[in-house]
Structure formats: C-alpha cells, structure tokens
Design a protein around this nucleic acid. Structure first.
Lengths: 157, 157
DNA sequence: TTTTTGGTTGACACAAATTACCATTTGCAA
DNA sequence: TTGCAAATGGTAATTTGTGTCAACCAAAAA
C-alpha cells in the first residue's frame, strides 16, 4: 500500500511542524511512536504501542509511551477514542471521522464514508457548553462475532 | 424535581419486570444501586456509585457494585458509555440519546434534544458488520472550563 | 410456614491500566 | 560547545476491573 506510506510521511511532517512551532524537541521516541501509531488502523491501546516499539527503541519506558501518546492528543496529532472497555485507544487520524465498535469483541474500525454523516453542531444547547466537534460511535456485531453469537451467549466472548 | 422521582420509580419498576421475566432475584443491592444510578445525571463511574451506596448498604462489596452495574447493562437496564478517560461510566437512561463531553474536565452531560440528530444506520458498510445502534459524542468545552482555559493551558485541568 | 435451590454476595487476591515522582539524559538554540 | 528547559527511564503507587469460592438470600415449591 502506498497510501499507508504517504500517511506516515504526512504524520511525521506534522509532528515536526507542531514541535517546532511550540518549541518542543523532536525526540527519537516521539518519532518512532508516531511511526508505529500511523501504521495501524486498529486503534491500539497505549500498551499495544509499547509492545510494538519496545524492540525498536530498546529501553523505552512504558511511562514514556503513555506520555508521548497523551502529548500527541494534547497537540492535535492524534485522537484518543472512548470505547466501552476501560482503556484508552489511540488513532493517528485526527480529522473528523466515525467508528464502528463491535459490542462483542471490542474491535473498532473506521467508517469508510464519513461524509455521509455530516450533522450540524448544536448551538450551545445547554447554555454555556461550547461544542467544537463530534464523533459518531456505531455499535454492532462484526463478522467474526456473528458466528460466535449463534453458538451461545450473545455478548461477552 | 418531580421528573426525577418519576424516573427513579420507572427504573425500579423496570428492574422488577426484567428480573421477574428472567427469573433473577430482586436484591436489596440491585434496588439501592439502581436508585443511586437513576438519581444521577452525571454518568458516574462504578467507583463513584460504590462510594455513594456504601453508607446506605453497610458492608457492600466493591465487587458487587461492579457486578450489578454490568448486569444492568447486560439486561438493558442501563448503558455503559465510553469516554476519553480510561474508565467505564454508566447511565440509567438506556434509550438512544447523545452526549456532550468536555475535553477539559471530562464532564459528560446529556444532549437535551436527541431527536434532532436521527441519522440512518449504515447498511453494513464494510461488508459483514451488522450495525445495531449509534451514539453521537459531541466534544467541547463546558462553562466551567471556558474560564480556566483563558488563564493558560487549554487542555488537562 | 418450612424447605429447597440456584443465583447473589462479600472478602480477598489478583491482574490490568495508568499515574506520580525524581534522578538522569537529551534536543536544540545561543 | 555549552546551558537549560524539557523529555526520559525506572520504580513505586494508584486506580480500575476481574476471578474465585464459601456463605447467604430471594423466590418458588412443598
């Protein structure tokens, strides 16, 4: 896939731009972690990224991976997405898009056509809340879990 | 508020109905935990509910609170909502509605007019995924955090 | 009312996920 | 190259959620 490589390159450039504009150092850790995150489409957890970069950055601290991912989110380089499981998952795609979450196995995939779901932002519906963006979380059962659900309990694999 | 009391009563009746129809006992713990959850609009975590019911049910186990809340979700009596924080939050309102989440302090409030945001469910957009429902997560800054953000860092209170 | 029975609860240990702290190292600009 | 602010590594601690099992209890049967 060439789109993959292009996306990675774009994210690396974005990382440099943001760091330079805010006076933050571009560290090896940030570069490698961004490379790892941008190369995945499965919205990994911090620990999954840690396992992935450990062989590439011998001696990385788990703490650093958590911190770097949080920093990406704080500076708009990545998104933290909320799932029903009790752990944070990250997404290098920071522009608006929507997700399909399997209620059975927890898998989260991107919705291919996000432009079909453009809705207007509510105008401060409760008074003071300033609405900036939104994300739609579709819930359902993925292909792999549909077979399983026929065998017994519908939820909780 | 009278709507509050009516909602609590409705949830208690729903609890009885569901338990009876499935042959499950209606325990004191379930009753008190439902009462606590139905009385809140801030989408509390399991531990917050635990702290709340501890004085009312002397000797409750934290494990029980976690289990009962999961049971509510499994039987459609409550919803587990995914936030950007790495912990599960619960909502006694089980019918479809949407949320406003403050990216600064993490507060989650219900969107008053959820009927304005009816969108069609995608027809298995990636092939095998069976879409059942959706929830829109609006992101923004709540009233309390707008003042804070003027003072310095925009994120992370 | 008493008995029976299967699901529930409490207590504890355990695992997973995340954060706090601090000494050391590093990026980068002067 | 040098200096400083920021980042990192390592460890410990906290928070959040799960597994196990004996004792218990709600609800139906006797």
């Amino acid at each position: 896939m060439h789109g993959q490589a292009a996306f990675k390159k774009q994210k690396q450039e974005q990382l440099h731009t943001v760091c330079r504009s805010k006076g933050l150092p571009v560290t090896v850790q940030r570069t490698v972690i961004m490379e790892a995150l941008a190369g995945r489409k499965d919205h990994p957890t911090a620990d999954q990224i840690y396992e992935q970069v450990k062989p590439l950055l011998s001696g990385v601290s788990r703490t650093t991976v958590y911190r770097v991912l949080e920093a990406f989110v704080a500076h708009g380089l990545a998104q933290k997405i909320g799932s029903n499981e009790a752990k944070a998952r990250f997404d290098a795609e920071a522009v608006r898009h929507h997700h399909l979450e399997c209620v059975c196995c927890g898998a989260i995939v991107d919705l291919p056509d996000h432009e079909s779901y453009d809705i207007p932002l509510p105008e401060s519906p409760d008074g003071a809340f300033q609405v900036l963006d939104y994300a739609i979380q579709f819930k359902g059962v993925c292909g792999g879990c549909q077979g399983e659900s026929l065998k017994g309990a519908p939820l909780k694999h």
